[in-house]
Amino acid sequence: MKKRATISGNTQGYIAILNTWLAQHARALIFSLGQIYKNPIGSLLTMAVIGVSLSLPAGFYILLDNAGRVTANWGGSMQITLFLNPDLADQEIVSLAETLRQHEYIDNIKLIDADEALEEYRRYSGFSEALTALDKNPLPAVILLNPARETIAAGEGEQLLEYLQNLEAVETAQFDRQWANRLFAFIEIFQRVVIVLSALLAFAVLLIIGNTIRLAIYHRRAEIEINKLFGATDAFIQRPFLYSGFIHGIGGSVMAWILLITSIKLLEQPVVKLAGLYASNFQLFSLSSGEVMVLIAIGGSLGLLGSWLAVQRNFKAIGLS
């Protein structure tokens, strides 16, 4: 009986401690919101700066995402042209075409033999008269083939091209869309740039929050000293500043989100127009709700980290005892 009483006493004690802890957190949160409410312009400016800093990498992310969606369809239209050795017998050409058709890196192929090629040339070039003067067909057989989409996506297009080039029956193999490849390479570089830029801007957000909190700490120095004198723990004093950093970070992310939505709205019309010119019904994609959550989480974490660093650095400087 006695033991049970002790246990329930302990439990009550823990609940009391937990309640106090929650109350202290709620107090710190309300206090931080109150401080922001009292100084809305300053807080909004800080959040706006954070918003701009976060919107840049997020904007580039959207840009990359859209570029990826646009170019995803290009892999399929990417074509390799094989000019075959003119000495090949018809039988050899057909069997080569058959081998290539089975190849796992190749989606589909189209064989244009020398006669067809000549016929096509005659029809489109306007040199039909001159061609009749030739006693022999000067054109080689041609195989047009589309690499499998996965091959392009995996960046193995070049290897496929090299393999084809080395086939004995093939005189020349060339990508019809060399520029697309260059674009992919460029996008890859751009991706790296965005990563570096994101890191730099995340650092900028840390500095902005850190500085805001540092100023707040110095501004409320008298209050901190009084709190310490009346027995406040470091955690008690630091909590409102940490909440403040967190709230500024979240506010900044929301600002970034608003900036991005506005920018996309502004771009939408011209992009649809441009896509129309390319006979495409492409539309700009914005952030998904999951991505917005990630953006807000990143902003909040940067805010918390920035204020934590500022608190660690500046509290020692004004610490009592």
Binding site: A222, E223, E225, I226, K228, F230, G231, A232, T233, F236
Partner: peptide, 19 residues
């Protein structure tokens, strides 16, 4: 222990130090 120790003391100052 410093915060807990201080909670048992009250202070007043010449310049009040009110917020």
């Amino acid at each position: 222990r410093i915060p807990l120790y201080r909670r048992n003391i009250g202070f007043t100052f010449q310049e009040h130090r009110l917020l």
